[in-house]
């Protein structure tokens, strides 16, 4: 069983000309857990991962795997498996030959090729030229490349893009299984909802800087609480909330009130004599907390869990 290793970024920065793609980023990724690496488009996720993998040279700072830079790893593919967003295949090569080239370079036995094709569900298409592959099949082939060396560390850039629902379900179970085996799993996405079912920890960046790191649960507790409340007489309910000074917005199934708990809203309604037809905590808090963090930009950069601003309902 391959062992996971700690991934560590310390003060890593990358500038492209005048653009600062990644700005003084520091965080660690632990083995045995699935870590979501989140941020909106252009946040610097891909650049950060490419720096980890020695493909992009950092302007300053370091990125290591088990304390070793990628380019110094004695057996890179057997240590780290990486799938990056851009599909990197020669269209005229078959999937099996594509894998064979890199298995040769890494000194891996040919038996691994069929093993990984089978793992990602491409056994029947291994002899097909990659030029004829669909987006989802390319994603799977990218994943097959990742697994070639049976590495203890997995680095996946937007692996869910282009997968069908069955594929998404499969990859979620797969990531979980990998982490449960003790491997380190770092998976990027620009959508929290895409990975929230499968991650333990989250690292959130915006415009190249860290805005949040911690467990998924910590993000949830930070989410600004919102209460969904409805009444047969919505106008009266709205008036009552307004009178009590509680902010709210009108949702499809009722009013979304910015309040710490449901009891307060119930009390306000009771005092105003308004009948309620619904009253419960809104469950969308995670996504909202995420959006508030990334829209806040890098101003809370470097902070630990617990003092992220934002989360107000609009």
């Amino acid at each position: 069983m391959p062992d996971g290793a700690v991934i560590e970024f310390s003060n890593i920065t990358k500038t492209f000309g005048t653009v600062t793609a990644v700005n003084d980023l520091s965080f660690t990724v632990e083995p045995g857990r699935v870590t979501g690496f989140l941020g909106p488009n252009g946040a610097g996720k891909t650049t950060t991962l490419r720096m980890l993998l020695g493909l992009v040279a950092p302007t300053s700072g370091t990125a290591t795997i088990g304390g070793i830079r990628y380019r110094d790893l004695p057996r890179p593919l057997q240590t780290v498996g990486a799938a990056l967003e851009a599909a990197s295949f020669h269209p005229g090569r078959t999937a099996r030959n594509h894998l064979a080239v890199y298995a040769r370079a890494a000194g891996l036995p040919a038996a691994r090729i069929d093993a990984v094709l089978h793992l990602v569900g491409l056994s029947a298409h291994g002899g097909q030229r990659v030029g004829g592959y669909s987006l989802g099949m390319r994603q799977r082939l990218g994943l097959a490349f990742t697994l070639l060396g049976d590495p203890g560390v997995l680095v996946l850039d937007e692996p869910i893009n282009g997968l069908d629902p069955e594929g998404i379900k499969w990859i979620r179970g797969f990531l979980r299984a990998m982490a449960d085996e003790g491997r380190t799993v770092l998976v990027s996405s620009h959508l929290l909802s895409e990975v929230q079912q499968s991650v333990d920890d989250v690292i959130i960046i915006a415009t190249g800087a860290l805005v949040h790191r911690g467990t998924l649960a910590s993000l949830e507790t930070e989410a600004a609480p919102r209460i969904l409340v409805d009444s047969p007489d919505r106008t009266a309910l709205a008036a009552a909330l307004g009178h009590a000074g509680i902010e709210f917005s009108v949702g499809r199934t009722g009013l979304l009130a910015a309040a710490p708990d449901a009891a307060l809203i119930g009390h306000v309604a009771f005092l105003a004599g308004v009948e309620l037809s619904a009253l419960h905590r809104e469950r969308k808090g995670l996504e909202e907390a995420f959006l508030a963090l990334v829209n806040g930009g890098g101003d809370t950069h470097g902070n630990e869990t617990g003092n992220a601003s934002g989360g107000e309902s609009r």
Binding site: G54, Y70, P76, L77
Partner: peptide, 18 residues
Amino acid sequence: TGEFRHQTLTPTFLANPR
């Protein structure tokens, strides 16, 4: 040039960073 064009430099340098 095919390595640049088809972006196969990525897997190539992942498999051998030297």
